[in-house]
């Protein structure tokens, strides 16, 4: 009996197809013509539309994290290490992952739904017969925009998260802005910043590729579009954790944290 369970088979099929899609993006990403106007429009949509959401979550993340950790640190008599601890936690891990998850929900689903409905209403076919390569026009621009905007959104979330954390510190422990951020930046080194930033490019790539793949290969009908949006979020979120794990593993080898 050499039958593979359908669930497992689907899993491998999907992995293969998404990899092929990503490969197609890599091949076409640097090839002319480049749809610059559409790329800028997507940057605006992706960056601007998610900014408010990302800032809000970042701020709350900083507040809550500090409020939760502080009592334990007091118990250990290590409360003066709070800026270092929170700084590293936010910049290295929580900022990128939380922001990417928010974006997987917001951007991934809207890409899945938008491209999916373009697919089922034959807008993608219409583009193709108009002499425009729809993969270049719709997919390459969106993935590039994701790759470039995600790191910026993460930086915004990190900054605002640290600010939130500072607000807690200053009300409870009367730390000055200067002292707080001096301490944060004294501990953060290149070994923290480089891998943390590099992985956000890959997060952007993952969200863009999965969102576009799901939309571009959406099944006919409104149900198909809904499913495309939904599974874009699920698959992208899952992939983010895998990438995060790999990034930490690699950083551990190269930067000896």
């Amino acid at each position: 009996m050499a039958t593979i369970p359908t669930g497992l088979k689907n899993y491998f099929d999907q992995t293969g197809e998404i990899s092929l899609f990503a490969w197609r993006f890599m091949r076409e990403a640097f090839r002319r013509p480049f749809e610059f106007r559409e790329f800028l429009r997507q940057c605006y949509i992706i960056g601007y539309n998610s900014l408010f959401l990302v800032i809000t979550t970042g701020f709350i993340m900083g507040l809550v994290l500090t409020l939760q950790i502080r009592p334990t640190m007091i118990e250990f008599g290590a409360v003066s290490y709070m800026p270092q601890l929170v700084g590293i936690a936010i910049v290295r891990e929580i900022g990128p992952v939380v922001t990417a998850l928010i974006c997987a929900g917001k951007i991934g689903s809207s890409m899945g739904a938008e491209l999916g409905s373009m697919k089922v209403t034959e807008q993608i076919d219409a583009m193709e017969v108009s002499g425009t390569n729809p993969f270049k026009y719709l997919v390459v621009t969106r993935i590039w925009a994701c790759i470039l905007m995600l790191p910026l959104l993460v930086i915004a979330a990190d900054a605002i998260g640290l600010w939130g954390s500072f607000l807690v510190e200053t009300t409870k422990g009367e730390v000055s802005v200067r002292l707080y951020f001096n301490r944060v930046f004294a501990t953060l080194q290149f070994g923290d910043l480089i891998p943390a930033t590099l992985k956000t490019f890959f997060f952007g790539l993952a969200i863009g590729v999965v969102g576009c793949y799901k939309g571009y290969h959406s099944k006919k009908g409104t149900e198909g579009v809904g499913r495309a949006a939904n599974s874009a979020v699920v698959v992208a979120s899952l992939l983010l954790f895998v990438i995060d794990f790999l990034a930490v593993l690699v950083a551990d080898i190269f930067f000896e944290i």
Partner: peptide, 29 residues
């Protein structure tokens, strides 16, 4: 393809573009 016009089953206008941009689209290529 430019010599063969194609009218799609559900009109297939580009949702994110105005009527003007819809008509510009085939022209730009």
């Amino acid at each position: 393809r430019a010599d063969v016009g194609f009218l799609f089953q559900g009109s297939a206008l580009y949702d994110s573009m105005t009527v003007r941009e819809n008509l510009q689209f085939p022209l730009r290529r």
